[in-house]
Design a protein around this nucleic acid. Sequence first.
RNA 1: GCGGGAAUGGCGGAAUGGUAGACGCGCUGGUCUCAAACACCAGUGACUUCACGGUCAUGCGAGUUCGAGUCUCGCUUCCCGCACCA
Length: 1043
Amino acid sequence: MEYNPRDIESKWRAWWQAQGTYRVSNDPSKPKFYILNMFPYPSGAGLHVGHPLGYIASDIVARYKRQNGFNVLNPMGYDSFGLPAEQYAIQTGIHPAVSTEQNIARYREQLDNIGFCFDWSREVRTSDPAYYKWTQWIFMQLFRHYYDLDADKALPVSDLVKRFEKNGNADVHAVCDEDTPLFTARDWSGLTEKEQQLMLLKYRLTFPEESYVNWCPALGTVLSNDEVKDGVSERGGYPVERKLMKQWSMRIIAYADRLLEGLNEIDWSESIKEQQRNWIGRSQGASVRFAVDSHEGAAIEVFTTRVDTIYGATFMVLAPEHELVSRLTTPAQQAEVDAYVKWAASRTELERMSEVKRVTGAATGAFAVNPFNGERIPIYIADYVLAGYGTGAVMAVPSGDQRDWNFATHFGLPIVPISDAQQNLDTAADPTKEGLYINSGMINGMTYDEAVPRLINWLENNGLGKGKVQYKLRNAVFSRQRYWGEPVPVYWKDNTPQLISEKDLPLVLPAIDKYLPTESGEPPLARAEGWRYRTGNQDSSYEYELSTMPGWAGSSWYWYRYMDPHNEREFCSKEAANYWKCVDWYIGGSEHAVGHLLYSRFWNHFLYDLGLAPEREFAKKLTNQGMIQGRSSLVYRAKECFYEEYLWLKVLQPFFKDYGPMQIPANKAEESVTYDFAFETNDLVIEVVSWKQTDKIEAIRQSAEADGKRLMVLFNEELAECINQHERTAAKVRNALESRERFFMTASGPQIEQLFVSHDLTAKYSPDCFSKLHVDISLVQDDVLDLDRVRQLPMFQGANFKMNPGGVFTCAFEVEKMSKSKFNVVNPDDMVAQYGADCFRMYEMFLGPVEVSKPWDTKGITGVYGFLRRFWGQFVSENGAWLPTDEAPTRDELRVLHTSIKKITEDIERFSMNTCVSHFMILTNELRTLKCHKRAILEPAVVLLAPFAPHLAEELWHRLGHETSVCDAAWPTLNEVFLKTDTIVYPVQINGKHRGNIEIAASATPAEVEALAMQQEFVRRNLDGAPVKKCIVIPGRIVNIVA
RNA sequence: GCGGGAAUGGCGGAAUGGUAGACGCGCUGGUCUCAAACACCAGUGACUUCACGGUCAUGCGAGUUCGAGUCUCGCUUCCCGCACCA
């Protein structure tokens, strides 16, 4: 009886559901294992074969762990707030909740098709009010806490207020706004209620602030830094501009150091950790205040990581936007500075980034004073100094910094060496920290390690600066001027933000008429009628915050909700959190390297500080799955110039010997020859042109007449029409050559509008004769286009196809991202329908390592299908007979089984699923060779296969007489005894080259092995009489004879 | 420019420092069939040899080692991330 996945799979899926096989309880009697996939955004396009890759790999691990006695949590849900649903709502008026619901239903159907062991009773959706109630609740906790640097954790703002009341803020070491003033207890109590609230905002971990943000007009919202790539929005690629706006912000900088340190204790890929380190961008250095000559009270603060080079500072550079520029510029320099500032402001981000090498700048005419040696140094402005980093000002040390060196060289400024180890300063800067300082006042003769503390000490003692750590990381903008997101649980009273009462959570998204900003430019929520907050019994009501939370809010804590998904009192109970602790293995795409993964770590550290999260880091181990790329098919469409090349290659060349050398335009641009083709011994000229270009035809005709030439006009379209019968065109040309008519032109307008050329023919033509177009891969098989179906499509109306000599039309292919727009999407549903879910799962794994990107090739799936059929065939004969017997297995059979147990166990542990599938194939091939149908071998093989092909395994498991699920069958135990063989085949090398093999008893000593090797004919022959220097025998492995 | 990763047949990819190319696709030949598909069997890195066999092969060049795809050093190319970050 044939293996029939369709029947088997639907049967067992229903059974699993009825049995609740995948229900997970928080059972403390068993060790836990929490494996998590990054939950998907349910897009309208559905899943393609690339999406489930990580889900399948983690499903295998989950099932494997369960068979090894673990209580496994392997949940799934949806990150269901997001821009696409809202964009769709704007276009169609359909509520995002409705389209999201539909998309989720489709996702679910596709996911169910693949046989995952998700416990759907634990599903979460970020857009569900029962879920976002807790997102809002966590936001409230952030608002109620500040970061205390002495405790090195988040503490309640209420405590902070008590300290202010007692002692003011002088002895408070907390992360706060840069401009927070010092105040005493008396100052504090003198503040009004509103002033106190405003002061506290400078400390809260989330707070509204006026700042420059990434404003995306096309999306009508601000974006956080990680949502902007190369100056445009990550979603949609719309332009982004800097705009000053009042926005909610998250004080993530408070956690910068902990986020950095935490990276050392988690098992994530080096590349992700490095990206996060980069994003945080910690640099340790010093801030130094430079006075400005003849500007009392003006001081320029700079940040430097190389304070040791300060004696080599020979000038100073400010960003063109620096606030002091206008004040400092001398009248003589005013015009030049104004011009430069204006020019710098006009440059786009792209220009700035691409013209890094160019040195530009302008002198302000003012001078700064080096606090260490009192030297006056000129102040320049230049756009290589960024307004947004540090203080927007640098002390320039041309001997140690290449950019400063370039600038100094360009403007003829002095370059002073500061270390005796610096070399070749006339060709480049030398940033060395080696050697002893020279020309450096108080640090002359010191090393780097001695100099830095000395200088910082001096700065601090003289009040001119201090040691300082600078981060590239900015506070994260938390507001979106959009509808489809979590409402911020805040109302505004007297221009200060107030949290709503916890009992009013969740603050549910109100209904609105249109998903657009109001006429006055307020966010969509301003459209909601009567949506105001009423406190207590008062009649007055207050306006809610109108922006919503960003996409990353709901995904920054969701792994806790899976632990306790229906809890109405807490986001997750203490017991559940303490049992599941954290994610043991997190799997997802590397595109979330700095967005989701950094914000999640931030929130988790915060929840940890509050005692709500049991671990500092939420995910111990992270694996990034690779992309499955599509194999796109492309057709070549002929452009104008193709027809000329075609006419020459296929039609005109045979006339060459009869009508003499032919003039063809050598270079179209020069137009040295008036006509496309002209024969030397015939007064006929030929012009190839589209019949639509009537003006051009008329002009050529007049010019031919004037030159006394006979003219033949060939339409591109008529060439296209008879493209597969070029002799017809040749006949026309011959006719014209031999005739004495003055003018040849086809009278009727051709029907053909475009021509496609079989890819295997295109090499003969220059590449710019064609444009490449994607065609749907379902129309292509083995790179051959299905013309009958293609001709039906609107896109190919009025098209003709130039076939290859075999009479078929071939396409080019390209490996690229799988996407709808490239028509290369392969739907998992189709694969499952044809080969079954088990086969699809195993083929996805078989393609290659999970972490690596690789192209999808549907053809290869037959190999896996054949394997599954053969595996089935060991149990069930062609006529449906049940084959397993209770005979005792042989040594060979046991060795085959236990080799597989060892390899498959090891390979799952190291996440090498592709080699697992190979081992299953080897196992099956060997059992077939051994004609083994013994239950003692086959039953453990079924258990091994269960994580990979759960449906097939369940079927065979039950046919073997079991009544409980194979999911709970214990993983087979390896017995090393069975791996041993009686004899060992040793490869024998001579000077490292493999020359032959010897077989000897496994118990043979190295000396015996050597002796046997030496007797071999092939050894004597290859040694050719040379004396043996030594013989290396690695027991059980190899023999190498050195001569 | 900086950082991370990679490079092995026609293709996807295997190889604790120990027979390079497992396994699969594709291809070639055979069996079955009127035929095709499916299935099954055999072969399949390149060059060379009637054959036995030999030579060359893991991006390039050195090195360590009895032995290197694997380790070290120096290059090349590709992918990813960051990028005038003081």
